[in-house]
Design a protein around this nucleic acid. Structure first.
Length: 793
RNA sequence: GGGAGGUUAGCUCAGCGGUUAGAGCACCUGCCUUACACGCAGGGGGUCGCGGGUUCGAAUCCCUCACCUCCCACCA
């Protein structure tokens, strides 16, 4: 979008540095500069999206100031005006003096500041009494027109019908009774400045009080503030008012006072509440529709925790100030005759026809950028015409954006979408966290902690960056981006590369298969196929539920852990010809093919590059991995029995490796392994003995009881015996094992106690109880293994 | 003043009733084992913010409190 205020501000700064200004240039030449600036930055953004691998149809790129969208903006404005929902009126608005424009409530940031509370005495007319009012902004007193009190406040009941006299000015200020006054705050009497305070403005309307404009749009005091103050900056005026009050004895005391002050989001200066003529959009009916859409499920917010925020904001919505005193934007389609009559129309010609004269001046103001962004889902598709695009692509399925523009953009798109098309513009809005730096700080140029995506891509690659962002996007949290993490995922990309290199160099004539019949395959092949199917089954629903973090996590561990650490290693004895097994190459390639396809959404560049090199990938798709089907579950591949057997094998290998350390054996010391397990697992272990020898670096594997004096252990239901020449343990290793033994003793005691607890046995589910029994048996074996390792009996 | 989220390993975060609390990075010890040292193997490290409660069982559910973020809000 054209980002009205921010962009105009940038260019105005540029002009200032060149010693000129927008006023000096004039509207037309200024806008030419704006377009120049826009082209440059538009290019940067496009380039970043390209580098990230956004696969958009760029022929459909749109910009809010394009002719088509501008037409939609005028159409929407005119319709809302004719429906009475857009009106023009004099009202108190948030005014940003340095920007010289009104801004909406959303563009005001409340900041807690240390201020002062000034207590000022006002004389009561026709008596010696002096009442006391308190204010944080004494300069506004010059515009006071009343003093308010609570109708039931007995302290001041005698003041009803009377008036105070404004110090320095002498104006008569009637007392008005209003329930909005808080009797507890200050003295319970409030000075009323209808034109420079929002709540005073409301009170002024309720009591028909006149207003006096003492501060102008430039933030300086006006002539109405009186000759002593006219022309002073609002803050200079404050000091002068205070000193005058002090000199004349009206100032009673000054207290420190912490309060909230609205600041302009873009310029950072305090907002000046000012009465001015602006255009407003009444969104109350639209808000109700937006609430309903969310309540009845036509619009889902992801994560759902945003529902409450949505409810609260929309239920308390106020008219939206849509006019901006800027030049960069959609000029408001309203024209005025010389005698001040207003005609709203799609074009100047239409307005002239209606007005009966072509002596018209168009409203110089432009619309809030968000007004045009609010129409985006349909204005980009040709609305208000009934186009094929609109019928085809509207409404869309999902909008992804940062939560920080939930109200600015998302809510307004939903409101206008429901209003103009009767449909929510998207079924779901996925709200991501904000990208922050490694310390969780918001990135900002002044802090200098901004990470430029193009630079990160240069350093780590787009895939590493994408994977990092996706895996950090957990619901309801921000995204702390740090380079170490990206480097970690770059290593993952490297892993993909090398695993593929291994496969390509070792599979011989094998080719990717569309699918594989597990019948006749050996256990390792059946195992990796089973694991792959389960992971594919887990990933898909996580993508659809926007849990990219979980999807990435599973893919990462499947690829690095299951596939690289285990399957590739397990495949080596077979591929090297030491212990051949059927169709290992085919399985390797087919698993790799599917793994790459599963990873493609998060690592598009690398997966495409590697996938193209897989022999036989054309059976999946002739051209590109982008169009290849996304792999899902393959039920025929899944086998709990195979997984249990292979899991036992893996655990045995792992335990043998750690026993080697625990027993103080040299990395290449020969060991003889004895195994005993029940039927199916035992059979598989016997079959896969070559793998045990290869991966566990074991000399011999014998099924059966170990000889006298062997070190015993138990893991995954497999009894392990290791017959070795005992070595002396290092001191460090000894103390580590002693520590583990100590913890084990405690765990055994607590497990025994639990299993002796009748209530536990009666109420806990059977599998928990049996699991506890098995666990206890393992701990006892482990205990004896540790003891023997330590030379204890 | 309302509301939301957070507080778990040195750091950034998962886990959100089943008892052995995980990951990445960082750290320690071995390894250049013919895919990968951006690697392999082994390992250390956590009273899951504090205090109560419910339960056979709580990081996970309930309550109190503390601290941190953020959003909303016209107490002058």
């Amino acid at each position: 979008d054209h980002a009205g205020i921010a962009t105009q501000l940038m260019v105005e700064r540029q002009l200032a540095s060149e010693g000129t200004s927008r006023v000096a240039l004039g509207r037309e030449r200024f806008l030419a500069r704006m377009w120049q600036w826009k082209e440059q930055y538009h290019g940067n953004i496009r380039q970043q999206l390209d580098l990230m691998g956004a696969s958009c149809d760029w022929t459909r790129e749109r910009f809010t100031l394009d002719a088509g969208l501008s037409r939609a903006v005028r159409e929407a404005f005119v319709r809302l005006y004719r429906e009475g929902l857009i009106t023009r009126g004099e009202y108190i608005v948030n005014w940003s003096p340095t920007l010289g424009t009104a801004v909406s409530d959303l563009e005001v940031e409340m900041k807690t500041v240390q201020g002062k509370l000034y207590h000022i005495a006002y004389p009561v007319e026709g008596s010696d009494e002096r009442i006391v009012v308190a204010t944080t902004r004494p300069e506004t007193m010059l515009g006071d027109t009343a003093v308010a009190l609570h109708p039931d406040d007995e302290r001041y009941s005698h003041l009803h019908g009377k008036a105070a006299l404004l110090p320095l000015v002498g104006r008569r200020l009637p007392f008005v009774a209003d329930a909005a006054v808080d009797r507890e705050f200050g003295t319970g009497l409030v000075k009323i400045t209808p034109f420079h305070d929002p709540s005073d403005f409301e009170m002024g309307r309720r009591h028909n009080l006149p207003g006096i404009k003492v501060i102008g749009p430039d933030g300086r005091m006006t002539a109405e503030a009186g000759p002593d103050f006219a022309g002073l900056d609002r803050f200079e005026a404050r000091a002068k008012v205070v000193s005058r009050l002090r000199d004349e004895g009206w100032l009673l005391k000054i207290e420190d006072h912490i309060h909230n002050v609205g600041h302009s989001q873009r310029s950072g200066e305090p907002i000046e509440p000012l009465v001015s003529t602006q255009w407003f959009c009444d969104v109350s009916e639209m808000a109700v529709k937006a609430l309903d859409a969310n309540r009845d499920g036509r619009l889902t917010l992801v994560p759902e925790s945003w529902d409450k925020t949505w409810e609260h904001w929309l239920a308390n919505i106020k008219p939206w100030c849509i006019s901006r005193q800027l030049w960069w934007g959609h000029q408001i389609p309203a024209w005025y005759t010389q005698d001040g009559r207003c005609f709203v129309a799609l074009t100047a010609d239409e307005a002239a026809k209606e007005a009966g004269t072509d002596q018209l001046t168009q409203d110089p103001d432009v619309l809030d950028t968000w007004f045009s962004s609010a129409l985006w889902p349909f204005s980009t598709l040709g609305w208000p015409d009934d186009t094929l695009d609109l019928r085809t692509f509207y409404p869309t399925s999902v909008l992804v954006t940062g939560f920080d523009i939930l109200f600015f953009w998302v809510a307004r798109m939903v409101m206008t979408g429901l209003h103009f098309t009767s449909e929510a513009p998207f079924a779901a809005a996925h709200l991501t966290g904000l990208v922050r730096d490694a310390e969780g700080q918001k990135m900002s140029k002044t802090k200098g902690n901004v990470l430029d995506p193009s630079e990160l891509i240069e350093e780590f690659g787009a895939d590493a960056l994408r994977f990092t962002l996706a895996s950090l996007d957990s619901p309801g949290r921000d995204i702390p981006l740090n380079k170490d993490q990206i480097a970690g995922y770059r290593a993952f990309g490297n892993k993909l590369w090398n695993a593929t290199r291994f496969a390509l160099s070792r599979v011989g004539e094998a080719r990717v298969q569309e699918t594989i019949d597990p019948a006749g395959l050996a256990a390792p092949e059946r195992w990796i196929l089973s694991r792959l199917s389960r992971v594919a089954a887990e990933v898909e629903p996580r993508f659809t539920a926007f849990r990219f973090d979980e999807a990435c996590n599973r893919l990462y561990h499947f690829f690095w852990g299951d596939f690289c650490d285990w399957y590739i290693e397990l495949s080596k004895p077979a591929l090297f010809g030491d212990a051949p097994r059927p169709r290992v190459g085919e399985v390797l390639l087919t698993v790799l093919d599917r793994a790459l396809r599963l990873l493609h959404p998060v690592m598009p560049f690398l997966t495409e590059e590697l996938w193209q090199r897989l022999p036989g990938h054309e059976v999946i798709h002739p051209e590109t991995i982008c169009l290849a089907p996304y792999p899902g579950r393959e039920a025929a591949w899944e086998s709990s029995e195979v997984e249990a057997g292979m899991d036992a094998l893996i655990q045995v290998i792992t335990r043998v490796r750690s026993l080697r350390t625990e027993l103080g054996l040299a990395p290449k010391a020969k060991i003889d392994l004895f195994l005993a397990a029940d039927a199916s697992v035992g059979e598989m272990l016997a079959e896969q003995a070559p793998l045990l020898r290869f991966l566990g670096r074991v000399e011999t594997v014998t099924m059966g009881a170990p000889p006298e004096g062997a070190v015993r252990d138990l893991v995954a239901g497999v009894e392990i015996g290791v017959s070795v020449e005992r070595q002396e343990l290092g001191e460090e290793e000894r103390s580590r094992l002693a520590k583990e033994l100590e913890k084990l003793d405690r765990d055994i005691a607590s497990a025994e106690a639990r299993l002796a607890n009748a209530e536990f046995l009666a109420k806990a589910p059977a599998h928990v109880v049996s699991g506890g029994v098995a666990r206890l048996a393992e701990m006892r074996e482990r205990q004896s293994a540790l003891r023997s390792g330590l030379g204890l009996s």
